[in-house]
């Protein structure tokens, strides 16, 4: 799984996605083809601002392995200001979350390939303010 993680490092660390110059839509994670324009699409890499708002969320008690130590933790469906949506961990008190809450991207540790393996970093979100 080492190359699999390495390959996507830029997109995870920097919140880099795609923008189609033909239709003006933004996508995260990045896409090779625009699902609206397909062959007519002109997909370019784009750096997202990292700001967005919460559309929905869950406080997860039955955690996936890498998040086990953090349970309960919050994952949220976030609409980035550019328009793309992302499902990402949200680091905050679960009782403070509201629909539409403004959030911003932060750089955090996601887990590791065991004690001897590489460390996975990526983008999580925190409330603004």
């Amino acid at each position: 799984m080492l190359p699999k993680f390495w390959r996507k490092i830029r997109f995870r660390y920097g919140l880099i996605g795609s923008y189609c110059e033909n239709c003006g839509n933004y996508y995260y994670p990045p896409r090779n083809l625009c699902p609206r324009c397909r062959r007519k699409g002109k997909v370019k890499e784009v750096q997202f601002s990292g700001y967005g708002r919460v559309l929905s969320w869950s406080v997860v008690h039955d955690a996936v392995e890498n998040f086990w130590i953090s349970k309960p933790y919050v994952v949220a469906l976030i609409e980035l200001d550019e328009g793309a949506r992302i499902i990402a961990p949200l680091d905050c008190n679960p009782r403070e979350i509201e629909e539409g809450m403004r959030v911003r991207a932060v750089f955090r540790k996601f887990g590791e390939d065991g004690e001897e393996g590489i460390i996975h970093y990526g983008t999580k979100f925190v409330p603004i303010g």
């Binding site: 660390y13 130590i69 953090s70 932060v106 750089f107 955090r108 540790k109 460390i119 970093y121």
Partner: peptide
């Protein structure tokens, strides 16, 4: 530091 913070995450946040 929180469970998901280490020297690398702290370094990135202050550098950003």
């Amino acid at each position: 530091p929180g469970l998901d913070e280490d020297t690398a995450t702290i370094a990135v946040e202050c550098a950003r």
